[in-house]
Structures are given as structure tokens and as C-alpha cells.
Simulated assay, not measured.
Amino acid sequence: MVTRQAGQPKSILILGGTAEARSLAAGLIGLGFDVTSSLAGRTQAPIHPPGAVRVGGFGGAAGLARYLQENSFTHLVDATHPYAAAISRNAIEAAQSTGVPLLRLMRPPWTPARDAVWLDVAGADEAATALPAGASVLLTTGHADLQTYLQRSDCRFVIRVIEKPVLTLPDHARLLVSRPPYDLAKELALMRDCAITHLVAKNSGGGQTAAKLEAANALGVTTIMLARPHYASAPEVESVEAALTVLSA
């Protein structure tokens, strides 16, 4: 376990890859803190935050703990995507083993509008089963579990991803490669043009992709929402502003 000296300057490691993580890095640097952001390296052309950046995994919780100690970080912030369950679990273990304080920045989940047609499901298997025959689906859950959905050859899919997946898509699926943020007008046009009847999404929260929910609600499209993974208890805030307040105290 690392022992901190009174008055030691704060050196903060941000587990990032989200818009909030980039904003937090900029804010902390503006306050004069030493900040390093860590990106998983799964995206070929990630948007880098200001400050120092490292790319790639740590080798599990033990590797993250070792990195924290070797680089004398005083604070660890988990600002990863709400579905990045593995690194979030590793962050808890590494913080506990090193004594480095952990703060989780977790954007709040979306909630359905009063008149939305919305179905909460536990995962991809349940989501795929919930699709009725003949459904025209906008699938926005990323690369994971694509095969689970594509087994539904009685449905049509528009698969929207940031980067092209490795697998070859069958005839009942088309690929749409694009990067958020998305606005309401374009989401409405996409759903109308593709005659979308169902939206399958992860409950990522935030504003960059929320327009698809508003568009789905406006058009009567059924939203099938995958639940977030469970996280062990940790100090947590829901906004960059709150994180800056905690870390600058």
C-alpha cells in the first residue's frame, strides 16, 4: 500500500475513452493537476484527451495496481463507458490493494419517457428473443454479440457502429459506420428511411446518443434496452463538475 505525504501534489490517472473523461482531463489540467488518461485501445482512431495518454490494457487488476504504484499516482478515476465492466472491476481491486483513492464518474442512465414503448432486458439473448418476426431493427450495441442478433434471419437489421466489424454481414443486415454525437433530425430521417420498428440499445446515458430515444418515441418505435452491468460499491459522481469538486478538495 502506498503512503501519501502531506501536501503531495495530486497526480491523477483517468481510465477514460468517454467524452466525460476528456472533459475531466481538461478541467483537471486547467486546475494545475498532473493528469494521465488511459485508453483501452479498441478504437483505431480514438479522440485523445489533453495531457499524457497511454493506450492499451494493464494486465488485469494486478497490472493496474502496479502501474499506479510505479508512477506514484495519488488518485484514480474510473470514467470509462458504463458497460466497460472488466476495467471497472479492476479499478476497484487496484484501488483497494494500493490505497489509491478511487472515484467513479458514471453518467446516469436514461429513463423512458412517459409514452415510450420501452422494454428492459438483461442482455443480448433476451433482446434478440424479444424481437418479433419481421422487425426492422436499428442495432446500436456495438460489436459485442452481433452473431446473437444476426441469427434472427426473420428480421432486418441496420447495424450502427463506430468501426467496421470483422465479420461478414448476411443479406438481412446492412452496416452503418458513423461516430456520435447524433442529432434528432438525422435520427428521425434514418428511422423513417429504413422503416425501423425496433431500436436495440445499451443504456449508456449521456447526451451524445440520446437523440435516438427521442426519435424512437416520436415515431412509435419500440426501444429494447440492455441493462447495465452490476458494479461493486465505490465513491461515485454523475457529472464532470461534481468530479472536479471532489478531486480539487
Rank of each mutant, 00 (worst) to 15 (best):
G63H: 05
V121M: 07
L76C: 06
V77Q: 05
S72E: 15
L219V: 08
Q208P: 00
L219K: 06
R114W: 08
V53R: 03
P229E: 08
L105K: 04
D115A: 14
D115C: 03
N71V: 00
P50H: 01
A242V: 02
I87S: 02
R4W: 03
M225Q: 11
T74R: 08
V35D: 04
H198K: 11
G16C: 07
A128V: 06
M1S: 13
D193E: 14
P112T: 05
L68E: 02
T129L: 14
S37Y: 05
A116M: 14
P108A: 12
A94S: 12
A133H: 10
P101I: 01
T18G: 09
S72Y: 06
I224E: 04
A122V: 11
A65I: 06
A133W: 05
G27I: 00
I87P: 00
G51K: 08
A25N: 05
D34P: 04
V200E: 12
L119N: 03
L219H: 07
P9D: 03
G60C: 06
Q5K: 13
M225K: 09
A65Y: 02
P229K: 11
D125T: 11
I29Y: 01
V53A: 10
L226W: 14
L103E: 00
A94W: 10
S136I: 03
A26M: 02
A195E: 14
L103Y: 00
G16F: 05
M191H: 13
P49E: 12
A210E: 15
I159G: 13
G206S: 08
Q208N: 13
K202F: 01
R89D: 14
A232L: 15
A127F: 07
A243K: 00
R54N: 11
N71C: 01
A122P: 01
S11H: 14
L150I: 13
Q151I: 02
P101Y: 01
I159R: 04
S204D: 07
R152L: 10
A210K: 13
L190Q: 06
C194V: 00
S204C: 08
Y231I: 03
R54F: 05
I196R: 06
A79W: 00
G32E: 03
A215W: 01
A173C: 12
A95F: 05
L175D: 14
G134H: 10
A234V: 09
